[in-house]
Simulated scan of single mutants.
Amino acid sequence: MNYLAMTGTLVSALSLSSMASAQEYTFRLHHLLSAQAPAHSQMLVPWAERVKELSGGRVDIEIFPAMTLGGAPPELISQVRDGVVDLVWTVNGYTPGLFPRSEVFELPFVYVNDPVATNLAMYDMFDEYLREEYQGVEVMFLHVHAGQGIHMVDDLIRTPADLEGMRMRIPTRTGAWIIEALGATPVAMPVPDLPQALQTGVVDGAFIPWEIIPPLRIQEQTEYQIEGFDRARFGTTTFQVSMNADRWAGLPEDIQAIFREASNREWWAHVGEIWRASDDFGINMAVNAGNTHVTLTEEETAAFQVALEPVVERWVAEVDGLGIDGAALVAAAREAIAANASDM
C-alpha cells in the first residue's frame, strides 16, 4: 500500500510538472466590449483557442473584456505599446491620426458592404501600404465590421437633407467627416456609452453596424435601422488585434509561426464572415422587437454617395499633407476590394 501511495504521488507530480511545462507562454489580451459581445465570444475566444491548439497547449491567451484591467478604450493602443498588456483588440479610430493609411478602408463607398473582401484587401496590401504605421506593435490581424448603418431614435432618414441638424454618434474621425458632410453634428464616444446617450437625448442617432444591437440593446432606444441599396453602408471602422512589439521580438520563431498560422489569410476572411453573420443576427433582433428596417432605393443611395464623395476628397488632401499618396491608396484599396469581392 505504501508503494502504491508513493507511485500515485509520483505520477501526480509528474503530471503536474508536464502540464506546467506544456503551458510555456501566457498572454493577456485586453479589449473594450463585454464578454457577451460577438467580438469576444465569436472572434477573440476562438482565435485564442486556435493559437492554443496549434501550439499544443504551450500558449495560453487570457482575455480581459470590458476594460477590466483598467483605463478607457482610447488608451488600449498605448497599453499594448507600453507593455502594460501583451495584446489588445481595439478600434483604430479611437486614436485619430495614428493610422492614416488604414483609414482608406473606412471611407464611404471605398468600403461599400463586404467585410470579407475588405479584410482580404487589407491582408494583401498590408506589407506594402500599411505596416509602417503600426510602430510599437506586431499586428496579428486587422478587420472591419459590416459597416455603418443609421440608427435613429424616432426620425426616419431617406435623404442626406433628413440628417441636417441632427446629433449623431460616430467613433472615428472619418466617420465625423461623414456626419459633417451630411449636415449633422458628430458626437464622439466609445460605443459602450451609446445607450445612455440615446436614452437621454445627447444624440439623435448613431452610425454603427447592426451587430452592436444585441449586446447594447439598441433596439430598445431606437425605432429605425437604415441602410443603402444592396446592403450599402456609410463607411466602416477598422480594428486591430496587436501584440506588444518587444514581447513579439522575444518569442522563439516556432511560437511566432504559430501566431502567424492562427492569423493567416483564411482567418482574416473568416473574421469578415463572423461580422457579417453577427450583423444579420443584430438586425433580425431589432425587427423582431418591432423596429423598422429601412433599405434605401438605388436612387436614394446614389444621393448619399454624391453627398459623401467630398469625404474621400478631404481624406486624400489630409494624407497628401503627410506625404502619403492618398489618391493612389484609394485606387489600390478599391481595386483590392473588388478583386476579393465575395458572393454575399
Rank of each mutant, 00 (worst) to 15 (best):
F259G: 03
L107I: 07
A197W: 09
L296W: 02
A188D: 07
V104S: 06
Y123V: 02
G136N: 13
G57T: 08
N284L: 14
F239G: 00
V91H: 04
V287M: 12
V287S: 14
R101S: 03
V91E: 01
L198T: 01
F27W: 07
A117I: 12
P115G: 02
A262Y: 04
V112C: 01
L44I: 01
A176C: 10
I208K: 03
P108E: 07
Q219E: 12
E261W: 08
A307Q: 03
A277G: 02
Y123W: 15
E335S: 08
Q256A: 15
S34T: 10
A146T: 06
T236S: 15
E24R: 10
A245S: 08
T238P: 09
V191A: 08
G93W: 10
A121I: 04
P74R: 06
E106C: 06
D114P: 05
F109T: 03
V112R: 12
E227R: 15
P252E: 00
P209Y: 06
D114N: 07
T26P: 02
R231Q: 06
E128C: 03
V306C: 04
G136E: 14
M19N: 11
A245H: 05
M43E: 06
R265L: 09
K52M: 07
A327E: 01
I218D: 00
P252S: 05
H151V: 05
I226T: 10
E266Y: 10
E298M: 07
A39L: 15
R28P: 02
V59T: 00
D124K: 12
D320F: 11
V202E: 14
T301S: 09
H293E: 00
D127K: 03
I77K: 13
R231P: 03
R167A: 11
I283V: 13
Q196D: 04
P96Q: 11
A245M: 13
N291H: 06
V202M: 12
R50M: 12
E211H: 11
R276L: 15
E103I: 00
E299C: 11
